[in-house]
């Protein structure tokens, strides 16, 4: 439970931490989009190095990022395998029914793998270096134009921030319930599947009850503190745009240029 990194904030003082949340969010989304246009190994090498550079700049140890990938690694490998097996072309090494392992397939598999890893790395950079509140504010700010169309942007942002509030809460609560169970002799992660499932019941029940209770009480607090959906409210968090933020976005343009050049010259 404690090893879940994606979505956690890691307080630190670095260039990346100091960037404006809007700049980071836009850059990260753009970067992820860009990944889908790369179709050459060299392009992946470039964006890979870029990602490593950004990770280095956060002053957070590499092991933290690696741990963030670990829970998802099987999923990624599975996706990459599928791509390998279902893609033909180039030199064919093995062929079995609808499945083939070909040189083309291996490349595509590798690209898929890289793409997933880089997506996770860059989103981890985003969440580790940006306070959840800043992130929701950034989303709020970026969606602002939609408000003219009658989209409840503020509600959406608050909903998001509450979910961000709720997830660590839920994890902490789980921890607390599990601690109480451990103190009463439950050993987690041991025994047969059935036994392990049985151990979940005394966790899930209090967790369910307390989550319901929590949701209800939080709603009460919001109510009493006069939160009204759709109504104008001021913002305590102020986002400020610096030159470094513009530079970050310019780097995205630069990266795009590199990707385009690689794609068209190396075919």
């Amino acid at each position: 439970m404690k090893s879940l990194i994606l979505g956690r904030y890691f307080p630190n003082d670095s260039i990346i931490h100091r960037l404006d949340a809007r700049a980071k969010l836009v850059a990260a989304l753009y970067f992820i989009g860009l990944l889908f246009f790369i179709d050459h190994g060299l392009g992946y090498l470039f964006v890979g190095l870029f990602t490593l550079g950004v990770m280095y700049l956060t002053k957070i140890r590499l092991s933290v990022f690696i741990k963030g990938v670990r829970p998802l690694i099987f999923l990624i490998l599975f996706a990459a395998m599928m791509r390998v097996l279902f893609t033909g072309g180039g030199e064919v090494f093995v062929s079995w029914g609808p499945f083939t392992i070909s040189s083309q397939g291996l490349w595509v598999g590798l690209f898929t793998f890289m793409r997933f890893i880089l997506i996770i790395f860059i989103s981890t950079v985003l969440t580790l270096s940006t306070k959840p509140v800043d992130l929701t504010d950034a989303i709020n700010a970026l969606l602002k134009p939609l408000r003219k169309l009658g989209v409840p942007v503020d509600d959406f942002a608050l909903m998001l921030s509450i979910s961000l509030r709720f997830i660590p809460n839920l994890l902490d609560e789980t921890q607390r319930v599990m601690d109480a169970q451990r103190a009463r002799g439950v050993i987690f992660g041991e025994g047969t599947i059935v036994e392990q499932m049985k151990k979940l019941v005394p966790i899930v029940l209090p967790l369910f009850a307390s989550s319901l209770n929590r949701a209800e009480e939080m709603a009460d607090v919001m109510d009493v503190k006069n939160y009204q959906s759709g109504e104008k409210r001021t913002h305590f968090r102020q986002l400020t745009w610096h030159t470094s933020d513009s530079i970050a976005l310019l780097m995205m343009v630069g990266l795009t240029a590199v990707v385009i050049v690689v794609n068209y010259t190396m075919v």
Partner: peptide, 8 residues
């Protein structure tokens, strides 16, 4: 425990 809305 249940009174906090924001994350800081």
């Amino acid at each position: 425990d249940n009174q906090f809305i924001a994350t800081s």
